[in-house]
Amino acid sequence: MTGYQSSSASRVASRACALALGGMIVGAMAPAIAAEDYRPDPNQTAIEADGGESFFGSAMDYVANNTYGRLGVLHFHYYGSSTDLHVDNATGLAAQAFGPGGSDLDGTGSSAGNKTSLGGVIGLYLPKTNHHLAVEVLLAPPLKLDFQVSGDAVDQSLAPTALNGANGQTIPTGVPPLGRNIGTFKALPPNFTLVYRPWVDTMVEPYIGAGAMYLYTYDTDVNNTVLNELGEPELYLNKPVACVGQLGADLNLPNNMFLNADVKYIGCADVESRVNDIQVNSPTLSPTFGPVDVGSVSSTNEFRAVIYQVSFGMRF
C-alpha cells in the first residue's frame, strides 16, 4: 500500500470510476471481499455486511477505494510471421497463371500495420493482498489497422504470365503488383491481466503480469485498387484468444498520482486470413477471355505484437 493519503475529491471521483468498473468485475470478486477488507478513511462510515444489500454496498465501497486508472499514449507494433499466400482452388485462366487447384505463392505473406492511439487502464487491487496483486483491464478506442501483404506480393505481379503461345512461349498477363496495403479492419482487443507488485511502498513500483486477450476484429474492408477493379472481394479474419505477458513500473507522485511505463507482449495465437471472391483484370487476356477468377487466397499468421504505453495515473 502506498503512503499517500486520499483526498475527499479523490474519493468522489473513485465512486464514479467504480460504477464503470464494478459492473465488469465486482460480481466475480464479491465472494472474496469480506467486510473486514474495507477500511474506511476517518471521515467515512463503515458499512456492516450483514445482509445482501449491505454486502453489495460494502463490496462497491471496496472497489471505489481500491481502484486505480491511467491514461496515455498507446503504440501497437506488429511483428508476427506468416505462411505463404495460398491460392485455394484456381480454375480457368487462374489455373493457367497459378497452376490448377491449390498452390502456394512462394516468397509472399500477409501482415498487419502498426498504430498509435490513446489508451487507458483500469485496475483493482485484490482483497487481502496489501496491494501486491491487482487485476487490470486495457481500455482503448477501436484500432483501425491495415491488412497488408508482404514479400514478393508487394512489388511483383503474382500472375505475370499465363497460357502457352503458338510456339510454346507464355503470354504476359499485364496484371500489376498489389502494393502493400490490401484493406483495413478494426480491432477491439479486450484483455485482462493479473499483476504482481513485489514492492508497494517505494517511489518506484515495478510489476509483472500475465493474462489473455481476445483478438476480436470486425468491419473488414478491401480497398486495394487492383483487387477492386472488377468488384470488391471479402476479407475474413478468425478471432482467437492470445496470451499476454506484461512488464511495467509506476513512478509515484504526491496526492495518489503516478507516472507509468508499460509493455505488453501478445502471442500464442494463429490468425487465419482469407480474401474471397477475387477477380482481377488481365489487360492482355481479359478482353478475349474475360476476367481472371482467382477465387480465394488465404494465409495464417503466427500473431506476435507488442503494445507500448506511457501514461499518467491516479489511485482512488
Rank of each mutant, 00 (worst) to 15 (best):
E48H: 07
I25N: 06
S54C: 02
R39A: 12
A32W: 04
I25K: 01
F56V: 08
E48F: 07
I47Y: 04
A34K: 12
P31Y: 05
A32R: 07
V26S: 15
S54G: 01
D41H: 13
D61E: 15
G27R: 06
P31G: 07
T45F: 05
A49K: 02
E53Q: 10
E53C: 01
P40Q: 06
A49G: 08
S58C: 03
T45A: 12
E53L: 11
M60E: 03
A49M: 06
I25M: 10
A49S: 11
F56E: 05
A59T: 10
Y38C: 07
I25V: 15
M29L: 15
D37I: 00
P40Y: 04
D41E: 15
A32D: 08
M29W: 02
A30G: 05
M60C: 04
G52R: 08
I25P: 00
A28H: 07
I33W: 01
G27M: 03
A30S: 15
G51I: 04
I47W: 04
S58Y: 01
A32V: 03
Y38E: 01
T45Q: 14
E48I: 14
G27L: 04
S54R: 13
I33E: 01
I47Q: 06
P40K: 08
A32C: 01
I25L: 12
A35T: 04
P31R: 09
T45N: 12
I47S: 05
S54D: 12
A59R: 09
A35M: 04
S58V: 00
P42A: 15
P42W: 08
E48G: 02
F55L: 12
M29Q: 09
T45R: 13
E48C: 04
R39L: 13
Q44H: 08
G51D: 15
A32G: 03
G52K: 06
M60Q: 10
M60H: 09
M60Y: 10
M29R: 02
G27D: 11
A34Q: 11
V26F: 02
M29T: 04
A28S: 13
N43A: 15
A32M: 11
D37G: 02
F55Q: 11
E36W: 06
I47K: 05
D61C: 02
R39D: 12
P40L: 06
E53N: 06
R39Q: 15
P40H: 07
E36K: 14
D50H: 07
T45K: 13
D41V: 09
A32P: 00
D41P: 00
G57H: 09
A59H: 01
R39P: 00
G27W: 03
P42I: 12
G57M: 06
A34N: 12
E48T: 15
Q44C: 10
A28V: 09
I25C: 06
M29P: 00
G51P: 03
I25T: 11
G51S: 14
A49F: 08
D61M: 13
I33F: 01
G27E: 05
A46D: 10
D50L: 05
A34T: 14
I25S: 07
A46G: 07
S54K: 11
A28D: 10
E36M: 03
R39W: 01
G51K: 04
I47A: 05
D50A: 08
D50I: 05
